[in-house]
Design a protein around this nucleic acid. Structure first.
Lengths: 347, 347
DNA sequence: CTGAAAGCGCTAACAC
DNA sequence: GTGTTAGCGCTTTCAG
């Protein structure tokens, strides 16, 4: 695995010698960092191609103190949600001639500590993450280390010094609730992925609740299903099973995300609650799978590829402070897991 | 974005001064690369912690000629298939204290050329890919550059100098065909993702065909549906629609992968071919979505996380030549998209 | 067991 | 326009 000291690789001196110029000149033409005569330029490029020279970015990075590499930190690379986000980052990175490193730091694992240390050691220029996957001590360390930090949908509040990209859940959840209300639903439950944690006014849950009151509806405590233990359908299923048993008066269920909604769909099937005739289910994210469930899932779509692209651009943005912060705008995709509420439910 | 030259960062000299030793000694205790007296060791560690020292991997890499970084190259990061693979790689990498870079190189795009160049410039120690996403000129360049190369399911033949991890489709496709045959199917079609390209004896298609003949069945030419244009359900749907129209005698359809199978399922629905009563569908991969389709998809599962882990280990393996090459073993997951063949179909 | 010193390959002053 | 040269922060002989 260990490569012998680049031995054999042609380096800048070799090109310089071949072209009959100095290394400085070679550097200048390669990076077009200072004017060089046309003739010399040509000779250098010829030498570069002839020798098959490839610049050594490691040396360059050491010298410049910038690695042209950004890292993406997510909770679970296997979560289908993240692949699109990373894709968007990678696409934008490719255009900006940056490389992207991925790493996972499962919440409440001290591996996170090590991951962050590694990233810092590797001197990545920036770090992008979606949601919390770091405890505040890690985060503070990052901030104080001076890496450029960017978090999407950071909760409950982003640390000072980190840029954020927020998702407009205010509008999004209004759409969700309006949709449900227009179908006659009044008893709308929420499938949440945590128990009691504080939520920022930009969070999914907060905005949902807000949208409910704007429609004159209240979210009763017993209508909150709690799915803790990971973003997995099974968890959502268990919580929904419990909810349906406990509060059969509910006619619609809004889910914190699609992964949980998938479980909700199965729970409904298991409980003999046909969707959408007896229970409407709506998710958030619009993961790939959402189109293929039975019935296909109505969901608040988050443009994740676009978010990734935006995240990278916003991270790169020099004078972000004086610019309006960009937002990610979700939109409701109505499929077939939502329908008219049963008449008798309108108690 | 550009970080000023690490200014302010504490470096090895600082630690050395603080501990009253030389940088050489600091290096030795940090890397435990040579015996150091217990007392000195202790002093060094104290200084390290006290100053919050973090080693600069860039400098280390330059000096050592190894970056402790591997790259993963895939065709499309958005393809749900790859996330698990990358996850496996990342997990193993974390244990081996390696970092992983991701990049995409869409086939037949000259961006690939640039990507490869970038990777080479960044001096990654190894490169892992699944399937072809590079043309042979790129590949040759990689091989000759001396990067450690590892490809999973490389087709039609891996270039000399690259290690490979193969998937045991021979056994896998036998399972698929046996399953179908045991359900009474004789007219089994194949939904392929390419037209005419040569296939290695280890490929999905080749093994399928082989398994068919072992059961005394032949795959008629008109039973091959061709889904070219990308691994997307829509493509699979179109090809299947066409097949069903052209060869209604078919009672089962084996798909090159789940993404295409998803499309096949929809095509069947559109054509009024109930699955599995009128048409059995089987996929390959067992992507996340497969569990949630209606009916849930029977598929040949590829343990992708495991494959990722294995890929990294095998890439790291020093004396791979004298060791037996590891294989990935798929297994059939029978769900509900396959069922008994219609009697009248047994012509 | 420990220190001094020579680079790893490149860039960026600074001269000319 | 071009060349010289001093490092970037670390590892690693080579002496002691």
């Amino acid at each position: 695995m260990r490569r012998p000291n680049d031995r054999g690789k042609v380096k800048m001196v070799d090109v310089a010698r071949e072209a009959g110029v100095s290394v400085a000149t070679v550097s200048r033409v390669i990076n077009s960092t200072a004017p060089v005569s046309e003739d010399t330029t040509k000779r250098v490029w010829t030498a570069v191609r002839g020798l098959g020279y490839e610049i050594n970015h490691v040396a360059k990075s050491l010298r410049q103190g910038a690695t042209h590499t950004v890292a993406v930190l997510v909770g679970d690379l296997g979560n289908p949600f993240y692949s699109d986000f990373i894709k968007g980052i990678e696409m934008a990175a490719q255009r900006a001639r940056l490389s992207v490193m991925v790493c996972t730091a499962p919440a409440e694992d001290d591996a996170a500590q090590r991951q962050v240390q590694m990233l810092l050691s590797k001197r990545v220029d920036g770090l992008i993450m979606w949601g919390w996957c770091l405890d505040s001590s890690c985060l503070d360390r990052l901030v104080s280390s001076g890496v450029h930090l960017l978090g999407v949908e950071l909760q409950p509040h982003p640390p000072a010094g980190a840029r954020t990209l927020s998702v407009d859940f205010r509008t999004g959840m209004q759409d969700v609730v309006s949709h449900l209300v227009s179908l006659g639903h009044r008893h709308i439950a929420y499938l949440w992925d945590r128990r009691d944690e504080p939520t920022s006014p930009e969070s999914r849950f907060y905005c949902f609740r807000e949208a409910m009151s704007e429609h004159g509806l209240t979210l009763k405590d017993e209508w909150i299903a709690v799915a803790t233990g990971g973003q997995r359908p099974e968890i959502g299923q268990a919580a929904t099973l419990d909810l349906l048993h406990r509060a059969p008066e509910v006619t619609a269920l809004a889910c914190h995300n699609d992964l949980l909604a998938l479980g909700a769909l199965q729970a409904a099937k298991l409980s003999g609650f046909p969707v959408p005739e007896r229970l409407s289910v709506v998710g958030v994210d619009d993961i790939f799978t959402a189109r293929f469930t039975e019935p296909p899932l109505t969901t608040l779509a988050l443009p994740r590829v676009e978010a990734g692209r935006l995240a990278l651009q916003w991270l790169l943005q020099e004078d972000a402070e004086r610019l309006p912060a960009p937002q990610i705008t979700p939109h409701l995709v109505v499929r077939h897991s939502t329908g008219r509420a049963r008449i008798e439910a309108n108690a």
